[in-house]
Design a protein around this nucleic acid. Structure first.
Length: 215
DNA sequence: CGGTCGATAGTCT
DNA sequence: GACTATCGACCGG
């Protein structure tokens, strides 16, 4: 199955998120291709979602999320990590789905090389567990922000070519509070917007929002 | 195992 | 100036 048209992605992230599970996200560039079977995602719902980057409107960083669905929103955070999202909803909505984890199904050697290059010690057994590691395994950087998900795209030299192939059937999954989201957006009962496939070794461990450090 | 904490810089108030 | 959609080392049990 090829990458669906943008219209397929242009729905509520609460609906799109589970549809992404089990699908294969792939990024290719001059050094090769890495693809992963998505096992964990989180929905972010714009103006209705205090936990979303887009909650307070459009800025330079989140502009891509306000664009049409079916594109990659990539941002940089904590001074060292990138994260990959798939833009959802209609243009102007500011909706998206964060890709938190996946099983590497293509380009394992390249993914391993990328992780090894960025740390002193040996990488963990799972190459794409956690959003920072997903971006690292895929080789995604800020240059990928705004890239379209499409087959056979001619990407600029500094950016990868992205595609996404949905699963033929939505796999069994569960939901829970999002990781690292503080305030009302992290509330378990009102925003159980993390979706994952139980039993998958690539799924990241739950972490509550970092408590404020005083001192 | 689980908790605690430093690294490190872009973004927004 | 505070916070961050994080990661992994380190330490105690």
């Amino acid at each position: 199955m090829p990458t669906p048209p943008p219209s397929w992605f242009e729905r509520d992230p609460l609906e799109l998120a589970p549809l992404l599970l089990g699908g294969v996200l792939r990024r290719a560039d001059a050094s090769g291709a890495v693809a992963l079977r998505v096992t964990e995602v989180e929905a972010y719902r714009g103006a209705d979602d205090p936990g979303a980057h887009t909650f307070r409107g459009k800025t330079r960083r989140n502009a891509t999320m306000f664009g049409p669905g079916g594109h990659v929103y990539c941002y940089f955070t904590y001074g060292m990590h990138h994260a990959v999202n798939i833009v959802a909803g209609p243009e102007g909505s500011g909706w998206g789905v964060l890709v938190r984890a996946g099983e590497v199904v293509e380009g394992r050697a390249l993914a391993l090389e990328r992780r090894s290059a960025r740390r002193a010690s040996a990488p963990a057994g799972e190459l794409a567990r956690g959003p920072g590691n997903v971006a690292q395994a895929l080789g995604a950087t800020l240059a990928d922000d705004g890239a379209p998900l499409a087959d056979a795209t001619a990407a600029p030299a500094d950016r990868g070519s992205w595609s996404f192939e949905p699963a033929t059937a939505v796999p069994a999954h569960v939901t829970g509070p999002r990781v690292g989201v503080s305030g009302p957006g992290g509330d378990a009962s009102a925003h159980p917007w993390r979706y994952w496939m139980p039993g998958e070794p690539s799924v990241s461990a739950y972490r509550a929002a970092a408590p404020r450090r005083r001192g």
